[in-house]
Write a protein that binds this DNA or RNA. Structure first.
Lengths: 192, 192
DNA sequence: ATTTTTTTGTACTATACGGTACAAAAAAGT
DNA sequence: ACTTTTTTGTACCGTATAGTACAAAAAAAT
């Protein structure tokens, strides 16, 4: 019994994540959050506790969402390397309203560097998990014959992780994304 | 006539830059600054105007310092490619007190993404200038015979820029820097 | 000595911002 | 009707922080 929650908790969380992603943690004020989350202050503190707790939840949400989605796609794919390549190439797509948000985890590491180590640690775990997935895909593709390279999988997965980290910065430097596309294509050439 | 300035303006600026570099712009308070700059509030506002203006000057200082130093080294070097390689390899050195500050320009782009576009533009210029230097070194070395690769210089300079941007993030993920060293060595192999 | 400029210190201001308290209204079930 | 829970609104609080005002002391030159 009792009144039902009008807003969808996860939807609001998503909205919050989007805003944190573009503006960063500190620059996002509570009022900003309330505005995009479409809830009032009282509901906010009732449901999410406080700003930090909310931010933590957006990190967890991002983690779950991206990995579950990625894993699902990988399981369906018969050519996992091709999927991986298309993921990287998608970064060269300009996707409208100046999508210069970078990588959620990478941003956190930079912004929270020394000030909120527990959060940066989460972000670091995220990126290491990502590298782990790259590693698995590479090992798997070597076994099943999709990859013939003799370069060590560890080097390759670190190489991809670094491509990931770099491209999220480099991408923001060029209006014309053809540079970026060429660069990514070039760097992915060694995956064969 | 009149009293001489006791503190060295550029020294204090350096100190401020160091702090901004490790803590970021927002997380660095005025009191933090006064403490490391070894000056009092009145002197601060007298000489530097305000926090934003100071930060701008640290960016300019960083720009001047790194490029003048780098250019000087390049002019002296007979093997410019080797110098470039050693620059990148130096990132794998752990350099004591958790040197996880990343790249000054890259940090600014991330932290100030949408909020202070004039500052992020400066940072972007910095990185593009860096890429320009990479380009020049590559072109020069191709002419003088130090580089025999047929890969386009533009691709290579973007590749190095992206290595730069990536490594400043990736570096922070590993306590053991041997991974990083191997990665950099691997990525620099195509410079020959 | 007097003037000029910088330094220091103290006190104050403004405000943005995260967070709390609490009562009243709005839905939902029994 | 009554209870329970959520929503909304208003008002308020504490504090961190950037920035100002201003006078007094400390050096320097004439």
């Amino acid at each position: 019994m009792g009144r039902n929650r009008k807003f969808n908790e996860e939807d609001s969380l998503m909205k919050a994540k989007e805003l944190f992603w573009t503006k960063g943690y500190e620059a996002t004020t509570l009022d900003d959050l309330l505005e995009v989350m479409l809830i009032k202050k009282s509901s906010f503190y009732n449901t999410y506790g406080n700003k930090q707790a909310l931010f933590l939840r957006t990190i967890q949400l991002h983690d779950e969402q991206s990995f579950s989605q990625f894993s699902k796609m990988l399981n369906k794919a018969d050519d996992k390397i091709a999927l991986l390549k298309s993921l990287f190439l998608s970064f060269a797509e300009t996707s409208e309203p100046e999508d210069a948000r970078g990588c959620y985890a990478g941003n956190i590491i930079v912004e929270m560097n020394t000030t909120h180590t527990s959060l940066t640690n989460l972000a670091k775990e995220y990126l290491l998990k990502l590298e782990g997935i790259f590693f698995e895909v590479i090992e798997d593709s070597k076994e099943t014959g999709g990859l013939r390279t003799t370069i060590h999988s560890k080097i390759l997965s670190n190489y991809l992780l670094n491509l990931w980290n770099g491209i999220h910065i480099t991408k923001r430097l060029f209006k014309d994304k053809s540079n970026i596309k060429k660069l990514i294509e070039f760097q992915l050439e060694l995956l064969k």
